[in-house]
Structures are given as C-alpha cells and as structure tokens.
C-alpha cells in the first residue's frame, strides 16, 4: 500500500499545471516521459484497486488477457499524433489523458502482468517493439508535420526516441532469452 501512496503522489505531481506544461512543451517528453509516468503512477496505485475490488478483477480479468488488451489499446491510442494534439488544445481530452493512462492502462497492466502466461508477455513485447519501430520509421521519414503543435525537428526526435525504446526492449528480450532466469531464483541457505 505504500507503493500505492507513492503512485498517488506521482500522479498529483504530474497533474500540477507547471509540471504538465513543462513536460508537454517538448514533444518527446510528452510522449515518452509524461505518458509512461502516468502509466507508472497507475501501475503503482493498482494495488489499491486490487485490494478494494478483488471480485471485479477476478471476474473480468481472470487470465490477464482482457487487461493487457485494454492496456495495449489505450497506450497505442495515445501514440497517435492527433490524440496528442488534442490533449494540448482541448481541455476535455487532456482530462481524458490523465484518467485513461493511469486507470485504463496502468491499473490493468498491474493486474494482468503476473497473470499472463509467458506467450502473452512475449506477444506484448513483440507488439511494442514493432509499434516503436514503425513509429520511429514514420516520424523520422515523414516530410510534413504530423502534429500541429510541434515542429518537424521535434517529430524526428520522437522518431529516434522510439527507435531507442525499441532497441532497449529488444536488448531486454534478448537477455531474457539468453540468460537462464532460474539463476536469479532465491535459494534457501541451510
């Protein structure tokens, strides 16, 4: 529960107008820092909801698949340039961002990840690798502005940032595959 409180503090911090303004003023920070941090705040707060509504999660997310699909859909939605543009120009969309990312992406991710079978995790990783690679390609390659609120150079920056994230996930996946994970299991010392 301590983590849930940290999550709430993080959420409130991110919602402070000067913080939100600063983070949204740089395209890549908006997309690849503010949004993941909102998800992280939901992820941390997830424990609170799991304890408060155990039956709900049991009933609707028993194997983790619905939750992870919701997570994927919500996060992918926010990768669409127009969604980001509207978050800046329309107040209601900004509010929706602050509700959807923690509650509809962070919380389900918390509930689903441990329930997912390894094939589900692999599919999720591969999906995000592909998504970030394609995004990188589009954002770097596009000759015109895809966001009204950000300059072309910022857009290319997001492209390179997405490639960097994809590279990090690929490296993480490779070390999962090539290092025997049972090495890290705790062994009781007698």
């Amino acid at each position: 529960m301590k983590l849930a409180k940290y999550g709430l503090v993080l959420y409130l911090f991110l919602a402070l107008p000067p913080v939100a303004n600063l983070l949204e003023s740089i395209m890549i920070v908006h997309m690849h820092m503010q949004m993941p941090l909102l998800i992280a705040s939901g992820f941390l707060m997830g424990r609170f909801f799991q304890l408060k509504f155990p039956r709900f999660f049991e009933k609707w997310n028993s194997n983790g698949v619905p939750g992870i699909i919701l997570f994927i859909i919500v996060w992918s939605y926010w990768m669409i340039p127009r969604a980001m543009d509207e978050a800046i120009t329309i107040q209601a969309v900004e509010i929706f961002k602050f509700i959807s990312l923690p509650l509809l992406a962070g919380v389900p991710l918390r509930d689903s990840w441990k329930k997912l079978a390894s094939v589900g995790k692999d599919i999720t990783f591969v999906y995000f690798i592909l998504m970030f690679l394609i995004m990188g390609w589009i954002y770097i390659g596009s000759e015109s502005q895809v966001c009204n609120n950000y300059l072309l150079v910022e857009q290319k920056t997001v492209g390179f940032g997405s490639l960097a994230i994809a590279a990090c996930i690929i490296i993480y996946l490779l070390q999962l595959i090539f290092i025997d994970q049972s090495e890290f299991d705790e062994v009781q010392k007698d």
Binding site: I26, I28, H32, T157, F160, G161, A164, A167, C168
Partner: peptide, 10 residues
C-alpha cells in the same frame, strides 16, 4: 540505456 536515451536523444 533507457536513461541515456532519455537524456541524449533530444
């Protein structure tokens, strides 16, 4: 690497 990317890409 993620922290480096956060810091250096922009």
């Amino acid at each position: 690497l993620a922290v480096v990317a956060m810091a250096y890409v922009v």
